[in-house]
Deep mutational scan, measured.
Amino acid sequence: TFYNFIMGFQNDNTPFGILAEHVSEDKAFPRLEERHQVIRAYVMSNYTDHQLIETTNRAISLYMANL
């Protein structure tokens, strides 16, 4: 899942690491979701930090390219 992918960046001092920290603390994050459209919609609806949203979009693109 995307959640498992992004958790691989925990403790990294990178934008993906920052995203992983936010996702791990977000109890409502769709952890079992595999459809990138649902993940993107969730982030757009629940996150207000523009940098975090952009990082999510980049992470989703990388995740999709590696499926």
Rank of each mutant, 00 (worst) to 15 (best):
F2T: 01
Y47D: 01
V23S: 00
S61F: 11
A41P: 00
G8F: 08
A28I: 06
A20T: 04
Y42D: 03
N13A: 09
F16K: 01
R40M: 14
I39R: 00
G8I: 07
L32W: 13
N46T: 11
M44G: 06
K27L: 12
I18G: 06
R35K: 12
A28D: 14
D26K: 02
L52Y: 05
H50W: 11
E33Q: 05
S24M: 14
R40I: 15
A65P: 05
R31M: 07
V43Y: 04
Q10A: 14
L67F: 09
S61K: 13
N4G: 10
T55S: 08
L52N: 01
H36Q: 08
P30F: 05
F9D: 00
H36T: 15
E34G: 14
R58T: 10
V38P: 04
V38W: 08
D12L: 11
R58K: 13
R58A: 13
I60L: 15
V43T: 04
M44F: 09
D26H: 06
M64I: 15
A28L: 13
Q37R: 07
F2G: 00
N13S: 09
F9I: 03
N13D: 14
M7Q: 07
F16A: 02
R31A: 06
Y63P: 00
T55G: 02
N66P: 06
F29V: 01
T56V: 15
L19H: 02
A59S: 03
F16E: 02
S24T: 08
A20D: 02
F2A: 00
V43N: 00
G8M: 14
E21D: 13
Y47R: 01
T55N: 05
F16T: 01
L67P: 09
M44T: 11
D26L: 06
N57W: 10
T56G: 06
M7S: 04
G17Y: 03
V38Q: 07
D49S: 08
I18V: 12
Y63I: 06
M44H: 09
Y3K: 00
A28F: 14
T56K: 01
Y63R: 02
L52M: 07
G8K: 14
V43D: 02
Y47M: 04
A20W: 07
E21P: 02
T48P: 08
A65Y: 10
R58Q: 15
T1V: 05
Y47K: 01
F16M: 10
Y42E: 01
Y63E: 00
T55F: 08
Y3E: 00
A59I: 08
I18P: 03
Q51K: 14
I60M: 08
M7Y: 03
Y42S: 00
E54R: 08
A28W: 13
E54F: 06
F9P: 02
K27D: 11
Y3Q: 00
S45P: 01
R40N: 06
D49T: 06
Q51Y: 12
Y3M: 02
F2I: 05
N57A: 08
Y63D: 00
L62V: 10
A65K: 12
T55Y: 10
D26T: 05
S24L: 14
E33I: 03
Q10D: 05
T48A: 10
N11E: 06
Y42P: 00
N4D: 15
